[in-house]
Amino acid sequence: MTISHHVGGDLLLAYGAGTLDEATSILVATHLALCPPCRAELALAEVIGGVMMESATTGTAPAESLPDPAIVGAGHDGERHGPAAVLSAQPGSFVLPQPLRDYAGCDAAQLPWRTMGGGVRQVALKTRGSGATARLLSIGAGKRVPEHGHRGAELTLVLAGALYDRDTWYRRGDVDAADSSVVHRPAAGPERDCICLAVTDAPLKFPALIPRLLQPFFGI
């Protein structure tokens, strides 16, 4: 299964440079876990960073503060799963790839979903830094989210099921991007609930009264 809707090159560059806000970085890292071609692009972005670091003015050399390897512990970087955890898990058994499980603390089934009405449930993810906010949404099979517009950018990464928006189907790993010019009403496919990660950098605009009244309670 290949992904047909990717994160934009500007997002990959900013993620590679380390300037992307934390909420959007979760979305990019999760897409990268599912998308080998975008990982190759990220590798290229990091080569750009290396070239720039190599070629810039070096300034003063630091005092000989070479870390003493003796006091540097073995560490477990890049080894968040022991071999046993990897073996016991079936491929594809997690709905949420690792970057998301780090934030959610568990997989989708164990999450404390809060209902928002209309068959839509959400879990907000806690991130630091200003700007964008990230939430996991579960949209009941065949249900639609209330019609809304945007004051900024909205990125939606599908994790399970399918999402139908503006004449296009999005599936696991696909990213649906909307900006302030878009007013839409995405719907979950009929077979199963659609779980997705939504990142917005400004509050949404709901034309209908009830969603608008409820908006402050859901922080959306």
């Binding site: 970085s25 876990a33 890049g78 799963h81 058994s93 709905v95």
Partner: peptide, 15 residues
Amino acid sequence: RERRPEFDPQDPAFR
């Protein structure tokens, strides 16, 4: 003082 979300090649969900 932010976290850096990163993918993990050892993750069973990793493609």
